[in-house]
Amino acid sequence: MRIRELAISGAWEFVPQLHGDSRGYFAEQFKVSEFERAVGRPFDLRQVNTSTSAAGVLRGIHYTEDPPGQAKYVTCLRGAFLDVVVDLRPNSPTFGQWDSVIIDGTQRNSVFVAEGLGHALLSLADDSTTTYLCSLEYTPEFDRDLDAFDPDLGIDWPTTDLDGNPLTYIRSAKDQVAPSFRDTFHLSATDH
């Protein structure tokens, strides 16, 4: 497995080795020993989620109030997503910055998102499917959202799908009214 830390501390990409033959392929998608060696801590699995999205579906930016926080290990099973990680830890040197990785069903790469980081997925193909391991069960009272199109974050969202067709962004009602980064973290115009 190839592993690399993203530009945001606490976020990692994991790319498994695919073993293929005439029957298909096999991959070790998550291996505790390799995860702990790279990240330096265990992953406490509490819930597994799966979602399927049409091209243009944008889920996020979502995060869990920290503490308790929620870590995620996100894998694309089919199609492709732009996986975006945003640093929401006020004392971090990369607070308010973001990084992204394309995860897809061909490479089967995964992204680990530590507690205190925001996360968003943009589907780049119809029927894109992701599964994610979570360190905390769904707890609505800790759930938070940020506006994915907030100019203060400046996320460079793709405007076309994998085939070069224009994307129409599709967001939930909740995501459409998510607060700004500046309002959420009570920043002045000169902060950040």
Rank of each mutant, 00 (worst) to 15 (best):
G20T: 14
L82I: 08
D87Q: 05
F181H: 01
S22P: 00
V101Y: 03
D183H: 14
Y63A: 04
Q17N: 10
V57T: 05
L82T: 02
V111Y: 01
V15E: 13
F149C: 08
P158R: 01
R89E: 06
V57D: 00
T130L: 14
L187N: 03
S135N: 07
V177H: 15
T131Q: 15
H186M: 14
D183S: 15
Y132F: 13
G20D: 10
R89F: 05
A71V: 09
S172C: 07
D104E: 10
G118H: 00
T64M: 07
P140M: 06
G56Q: 00
E34Y: 07
P166T: 03
V32L: 11
R2L: 13
D161F: 02
A38G: 05
G40W: 12
R23W: 05
K31R: 15
N49K: 06
G105M: 12
V86I: 12
D175Y: 00
V101P: 02
P68H: 06
L58V: 07
P68R: 04
F142T: 12
V177W: 05
D83T: 04
V57N: 00
Y138L: 10
G10A: 07
G40K: 09
D99C: 13
D191Y: 11
C76L: 07
D163Y: 10
I102N: 03
E137G: 14
V57E: 02
D183G: 08
T139F: 11
L133N: 04
G56V: 02
I3C: 09
R182D: 05
V48S: 13
L82G: 04
I8G: 01
Y169W: 14
R182S: 05
E115C: 12
W12I: 00
R144M: 14
D104G: 11
R37W: 09
A71L: 10
D143T: 11
Q17H: 10
F95A: 03
A173D: 15
A38S: 13
A189E: 15
G154M: 09
I8E: 00
A55P: 06
V15W: 01
Y25W: 15
V177A: 15
P16M: 09
T129C: 15
N109C: 13
T106C: 07
Y73M: 06
L121H: 01
L82W: 04
W12Y: 15
